[in-house]
Design a binder for these strands. Structure first.
Lengths: 206, 206
DNA sequence: TGTACATCAGTGAACGCGCGTTCACTGATGTAC
DNA sequence: TGTACATCAGTGAACGCGCGTTCACTGATGTAC
């Protein structure tokens, strides 16, 4: 399938590109979005960026390094989004925690390919240190909120265990949505309601 | 990487194989288990089964058809397991429903590659009719149990909505486990406890 | 029981293809003077 | 301001490789007589 340049990744005129590194990342994101991270070819990304297939090696060690970079950016973006969500809806409140969950699912829907990289089967990508650190930071944010909620609402629950349950829930929703698996048995499911309801039950005084 | 024949897929002596269809399915399952469904090559499966790369075309239309067959078998197996679980732990009971969830996660852990096929991104595989039917049947089993539980325990909840929440939960647990994503923030998490606890909260009188 | 024969599962070679990476190179850029 | 030059981003051709699928074929099997 021939790949034509999209506006966001079109090269500048002339011999030098200007921001080939950025353009290759943009092209890669676009390609893994449509073909999945496993079926992405570096050669296609080069075609999208309008450069020769040898050009990426001036900016990345190998194909894998581009994916690692995208994965890393993804965790930072996810952290930013969930933090923004909880701040907008109330730090330490039930609504704030639910908003974090919804932000997680929204991220999976909007940045599906990046989400797949971040939580998918390619272990090599996830195991570099910067990625692990950003990932832990995201989760710590959730635990902190749950702990805060438990304290202020005088709940006896273990924040770490509850945060894990909530993460499991929103991650499940994300996966079932992006892989179109709800469609078969619950077309048009209201996912915000599902998450809100389930999270409320998980966070309820037990 | 050279692939050597495993006992379960070794060919019989002689020109004719005997059960090449079965051997190719076994070989494919083995390969997608180690390389993922996206990185499986038909040629490797042939090597494992000890036949030429042209042999599969006497039994399958193309590469995709082998994967569809495995996906189909997977839904049937999952249905069998969840039904067996609920029958062993109490039809229409909370424990029975929790057992179904645990059986779902156990299936994901034991048949990871098949699970990935069944719920993964390859839409073409999931969209054939037999697969859709088996998938719906699996989910209906859960709804029925939840409905039964709601009735006998005089709960007002909507069985369909509650079943969706439970599915979301156990699917999330399955994905996070098989992709090794719990490891970073909760190494050695007790997943049976997590599911039991969360399911109890979701099924609790609201 | 013995033989002729149709069937068809598996062969092995070939096809066209696209991949990731390497290589010596080229020419645009920007700095030193 | 003008010129010489070092830098290094991007080129284009080539590499070795493995893939999915097709093809005419072959020979083991089992059935009809």
């Amino acid at each position: 399938m021939p790949v034509t340049a999209a506006p966001t990744v079109r090269r500048k005129a002339g011999f030098h590109h200007g921001d080939l590194r950025g353009a290759l990342i943009a092209a890669t994101r676009q390609l893994i979005e449509s073909h999945g991270p496993e079926n992405f070819s570096l050669a296609d990304a080069c075609r999208l960026a309008g450069v020769s297939t040898a050009a990426p090696y001036k900016h990345f060690r190998d194909k894998q390094e581009i994916l690692q970079e995208i994965c890393q950016q993804g965790f930072e973006e996810l952290g930013r989004r969930t933090e923004a969500a909880v701040e907008a809806h109330g730090v330490g409140t039930l609504e704030g925690i639910v908003a974090m969950g919804r932000a997680y699912v929204a991220f999976a829907l909007e940045e599906t390919a990046v989400f797949r990289l971040m939580f998918g089967q390619n272990k090599a990508i996830k195991q570099i240190e910067e990625v692990e650190t950003s990932g832990k930071a995201c989760f710590s944010g959730v635990i902190n909120q749950v702990a805060l909620f438990c304290t202020t609402s005088e709940q006896p629950g273990d924040p770490h265990a509850i945060a894990l349950q909530l993460w499991t829930l929103v991650h499940g929703a994300s996966c079932l949505l992006i892989d179109d698996d709800y469609a078969k048995v619950a077309p048009g499911v209201d996912i915000d309601a599902l998450i809100g309801d389930a999270a409320r039950r998980i966070l309820a005084r037990s």
